[in-house]
Design a protein around this nucleic acid. Structure first.
Lengths: 339, 339
DNA sequence: CTGAAAGCGCTTACAG
DNA sequence: CTGAAAGCGCTTACAG
């Protein structure tokens, strides 16, 4: 049982070499005589030595930790994203620091400071606010690469991974139109951020394409939260002429909407259809199974980490934007079995 | 725009004091003359100085990061746990490193090594294997406190947060018995770990209490995964005399079971009831809304962090075990509307 | 190919 | 109350 932690000098002493040589062997930098290398490796083995990452980080001025700054892990989109980032990071010997902002700029700012103090190797961030550029820029200028996911920020060019939001919303709504629905409501997200705005645009685009006049009272703007979807749905269904279909702009809103519809005893999709942006692993088990526009969230995480790794290696390369295609998955909440 | 990162000496120079004084002011250790303190604070402000956490960690031989080692964040139980730990850690100026083991001992071992190299302030771990003591002990002996969550490990006494698993399973199964079900199947988890074992015990206890003979062919042992719940349910329902109720030992198994039942067109709960261990935020929106035994998972995370903080402060205090009570939440999957 | 030495940015006895 | 100095464990020019 090796109680005392050994450091590089212990290894050096045991192997009869200098600590520089130990470092070279372990890092694979520079060439080392085969015999010395063998002695070093033996000593490492015997002492169960593992380099101290903190010391390494201080010395090279960069840690092997990446910060993952997202609104909330309880949102299925980010859940899958987190898993992807963690998987890829693990494969690259990086660790990930999880930061939930709850979409609050002050929390984001706080985390940004911590990540900087922590010398993060890089950051993957879902910005909380259109003006995030002000807090993101100093961090990047301090030498920490940043890749943006899900949302774009004006005045802050950066490596970015997004989904074609307006297209996604459009295929969802077009599908509803094709199924015969004509009074389609939209539960829109915040219009300050790209996903909320683009998805609402997609909703209008689908109407335009079908030469349908969108009904102003059926377009409601809320937040990407469960409660918002819940409240908005109750409002909508209390209208003198309620909608015959609802397009929810994200998974949380859809869940809230579903809850409200169940409370009212609305039959889905006979009385009102429901389609959601974002897939969830349990979407098929909901009542009824939910038609969704799935974002390739796992892939988004993978791509984000790849962009980040590339940026770390080549700080001056030009920025890349990866736009992934969402996909319509038709389940029962948008069928019209009664027709 | 402060491009260059400033260090403690820059601040000291600007304030006309030594770096030791700057350190004292910022850390709040030792008393510092009010005027000097003011000058330091001003300099910090002007230079937008933030102490380098890596250097701090190296110096004090302990980082302000805690490692959270769980099987899989996609499991609703751990999802909520992670959120709780992150919230509390944030309140205590700690960051959390997320590590998914997929219940693979080799991944756990690897992460343990990394956390050690990272000088983690402490670890919250859901052990993957009954023999985990062998890998956990060296880490603890190296000075990193560990608190166990969800599972206990023989030969490794430690601060622990668990739920009363056998009680939870028992109230779930007793509820089914009370509802009139008599052929109750159990989808049991791995018997090597406490949750799987205790929940199966609870299943038997409920039968004993009701003076009912459990039917051997209805007790199936699998893994805590979706596929396992799915496969086992298909097997069970293909029996000459299938069960009239199923108790799933965790949320993932329940989801798999639900899927299988839907595929077979089994009517729930008329034909077969389903009760699950673990609540999920969307359990009420499933088809049908799922009766569950809810673990207070958020609270488990809070408690775990508290135990850890206490352990860090008092390394030699005696170990504490927190046992939380699960709670039965009756929804429609266990009702018998047809009777 | 190898080693002695400097230094990353802090904190904390130690001395005054 | 304050400062000079040592040292945490590494890596990497630099010299040989």
């Amino acid at each position: 049982m090796q109680r005392e932690k050994s450091n590089i000098h212990d290894v050096a002493r045991k192997a009869g070499v200098s600590s520089a040589t130990v470092s070279r062997v372990l890092a694979g930098n520079g060439s080392v005589n085969a015999e010395l290398r063998g002695r070093v490796l033996d000593a490492v083995e015997v002492l169960n030595y593992q380099p101290n990452r903190v010391a390494q980080s201080l010395r090279v001025q960069r840690s092997s930790t990446i910060g993952l700054i997202i609104p909330d892990i309880q949102n299925a989109l980010f859940l899958s994203l987190v898993r992807a980032v963690e998987d890829c990071a693990y494969a690259h010997q990086l660790t990930v620091m999880l930061c939930n902002t709850d979409d609050k700029p002050e929390k984001e700012l706080s985390y940004l400071g911590i990540m900087r103090a922590q010398q993060a190797a890089g950051l993957i961030v879902v910005p909380t606010h259109p003006k995030d550029s002000d807090m993101l820029s100093p961090v990047r200028e301090a030498g920490i690469p940043i890749v943006l996911v899900d949302r774009e920020i004006s005045g802050f060019e950066a490596d970015t991974v997004i989904v074609d939001n307006s297209y996604g919303a459009q295929i969802a709504v077009s599908h509803l139109i094709a199924m015969g629905y004509r009074r389609i409501a939209v539960l829109a997200g915040p219009q300050e951020l790209t996903p909320g705005r683009k998805r609402l645009q997609g909703y209008y685009n689908a109407h335009r394409e079908a030469a349908l006049e969108p009904l102003p009272e059926l377009a409601r703007v809320g937040t990407f939260k469960r409660d918002s979807g819940y409240d908005l749905t109750h409002q909508l269904m209390s209208l003198p002429r309620p909608p015959d279909a609802i397009f929810a702009s994200n998974n949380l809103m859809a869940l809230g909407s579903l809850r409200a519809l169940h409370e009212r005893g609305s039959r889905i999709p006979d009385e009102v259809a429901l389609v959601s942006f974002d897939d969830m692993p349990w979407a098929e088990d909901l009542n009824p199974p939910l038609t969704v526009v799935a974002q390739p969230s796992y892939e988004m995480g993978q791509q984000a980490l790849e962009l980040l790794l590339h940026r770390i290696k080549s700080p001056d390369a030009s920025y890349r934007k990866v736009i992934l295609q969402p996909q319509l998955i038709i389940r029962q909440s948008s069928g019209m079995p009664g027709h």
